[in-house]
Design a protein around this nucleic acid. Sequence first.
DNA 1: CTTGGAAAGTCAACAAGGCTGACATAAAAT
DNA 2: ATTTTATGTCAGCCTTGTTGACTTTCCAAG
Lengths: 169, 169
Amino acid sequence: MAEGGAGPGGGESLLFLTDDQLRKGIEAMFFAYRGFTADPDRILERHEYGRAHHRAMHFIHRSPGTTVNNLLSILGVTKQSLNRVLRTLIDDGLVESRVGRKDKRERHLFLTDKGTALERELSEAQRGRMRSAYRAAGPQAVAGFRQVLEAMMEPEMRRQYQTLKDAGA
Amino acid sequence: MAEGGAGPGGGESLLFLTDDQLRKGIEAMFFAYRGFTADPDRILERHEYGRAHHRAMHFIHRSPGTTVNNLLSILGVTKQSLNRVLRTLIDDGLVESRVGRKDKRERHLFLTDKGTALERELSEAQRGRMRSAYRAAGPQAVAGFRQVLEAMMEPEMRRQYQTLKDAGA
DNA sequence: CTTGGAAAGTCAACAAGGCTGACATAAAAT
DNA sequence: ATTTTATGTCAGCCTTGTTGACTTTCCAAG
């Protein structure tokens, strides 16, 4: 099985971390991320949207009623950039923006039925690939995959991720 | 490679793959990739370059003397797009382009000393984060990480990755 | 109550880096 | 001699980042 050393005996950790091993990890991230986005990208192209629209829809679906500011901190882009994407989604009737009841400065975002349909199409494609990869690698590998990814995040993003993760669990 | 079922009780594979588990994997990829590129991005900004320059330098460093066409198929962009980046790197004296000895149509690409220095700065930052993540997660997790990523790649990119992986091993 | 600042969102304009299409050159292959 | 291949270049477009300036709303201090 894959080099890894692995097995029972974590003392090997140091041997393991040659620059070459690290480089392979870096390239694996690079190529895998391309695969990760490939299926949604093909669908988005047909609908004349981009990855930015997908990201917005994903997190609105994930946390319905979230505010623009919330979304900004999750996506890590400027509000102007997000706003452009959001505007086309609203104009096209995929997203609904409701003025806050308590604080009228806020806009609460929801997917419409049409938006929900596209989000499902996109996420089903993406989950399909993830499912195959998980099946091919096995449960133990999946646990390791998640551990390494989590350790790779910036602390602030890890907090965002944990919050989302816990909310959904 | 990891026998599909893995671990004690391969029967868990199916239970495991709820949409919620898959969604967490998707979000983990999203947030982790941001961390993955964060350090190089900061360095690149100081040098007035972008991620595209980093990618080109990485693979030229990885396979010195590679041709433009080779690089194109690895990076998966158009020649016009790559050329823009390559031209600035050549003009700035980070990359050298030598006419092929055997086939004079080809250009073989090399990092200059200056290019090597910047590449090292970038890759050291990136390896630093990868190393911490690997250490935090442990050798077994690393093996799983690599297995899942590999399974997630498009077949063509997996071939590219394997070739590079083997060449360096 | 009013006023001044902070917060949320919007509009305008610019830059990086993808893309396509058209075309030029040199070298290799037929 | 002709065609194909490898590379480079110009022009122009699109998406999605950016900053700066502005409006509306809220809240808190006077």
